[in-house]
């Protein structure tokens, strides 16, 4: 039987690990390569790197980080942040990333999803969506809106419609990131996650809001997510990866237990 996955997201800025609260006020918290190795050895199922480097001249630092991590971490690696073309995706794949996360650039130019899927395979294209709760309206039937540029720019695009379009265009997986929940540590956005996970046929990764082990349990059951993404919970040493997985196993979920 397929296990549900625990994924850690490392926000990397200029080659250093950073963590944001509600997408602003980021602070650096360490070496991403060291953290990645630590989590891998502690049983993490998958790693996501998100490049939040602002200046394009420092973007190549990310390739070095990915390459250094791929040398010593033998689980799937996914990279996102600022990917605008198949060529960006290919560079990261050659550096050692399995999967490529596209976000804002795909909203601005949806063909990016098709192009990446054709070039690197659907299963390696992850559509990452930053989503804010609003009021249901004609433009936003689901009541959830896609926002881009790190949460700063609303788009008037309905989250459900975009998830379905992304799947149709060839995304192999979705990351559902709730801007409302991000960094709050009060739990994932369960209604949103369940709505999107039941609407699509591809795996859904829940992101944003995890603060306690039961939040992971909730999103992997009521939230119908295939994988739960954590950041702050493990980065500051509050919980260990293995501890979270043991907790979820004890609550009856199937997680990879030996590594």
């Amino acid at each position: 039987m397929l296990s549900q996955r625990l994924i850690a997201c490392l926000d990397v800025r200029d080659g250093q690990l950073a963590k944001s609260i509600k997408f602003v006020d980021t602070k650096d918290i360490g070496d991403p390569v060291e953290k990645a190795r630590e989590y891998y050895l502690d049983g993490l199922d998958e790693l996501v790197f998100y490049d939040i480097t602002a200046s394009s001249d420092k973007r190549n630092i990310m390739l070095d980080v990915v390459s250094a991590v791929a040398e010593q971490v033998f689980i799937p690696l996914s990279v996102g942040g600022g990917i605008r073309s198949v060529s960006d995706a290919t560079d990261l794949r050659l550096a050692g990333a399995e999967k490529i996360n596209v976000n804002s650039a795909a909203v601005q130019r949806p063909d990016l999803i098709d192009e990446c899927a054709a070039s690197i395979g659907n299963q390696n294209v992850v559509l990452s969506m930053d989503i804010r709760r609003g009021m249901p309206s004609t433009e936003l039937p689901s009541g959830y809106e896609i926002v881009i540029n790190g949460g700063r720019t609303p788009t008037q695009i309905d989250a459900l419609a975009w998830a379905l379009e992304g799947e149709k265009r060839g995304a192999g997986e979705l990351v559902v990131n709730s801007i409302d929940a991000d960094g709050t540590q009060i739990g994932y956005e369960l209604v949103l996650t369940a709505m999107l996970s039941t609407a699509v046929r591809i795996p859904v990764i829940a992101s944003g809001g995890a603060g306690k082990p039961e939040h992971l349990y909730d999103v992997l059951t009521a939230g119908k997510a295939d994988a739960a993404l954590v950041a702050s919970m493990v980065h500051y040493g509050t919980y260990k990866v293995s501890e979270l997985k043991h907790y979820l196993c004890e609550r009856g979920l199937k997680m990879r237990q030996s590594w």
Binding site: M1, L2, S3, Q4, R5, D45, N122, Q123, G172, E173, R201, I202, P203, D226, A227, R256
Partner: peptide
């Protein structure tokens, strides 16, 4: 309809 494809992730 409830089966997600691809089969993606860790399995025993």
């Amino acid at each position: 309809a409830s089966l997600k494809v691809p089969h993606m992730g860790w399995n025993n």
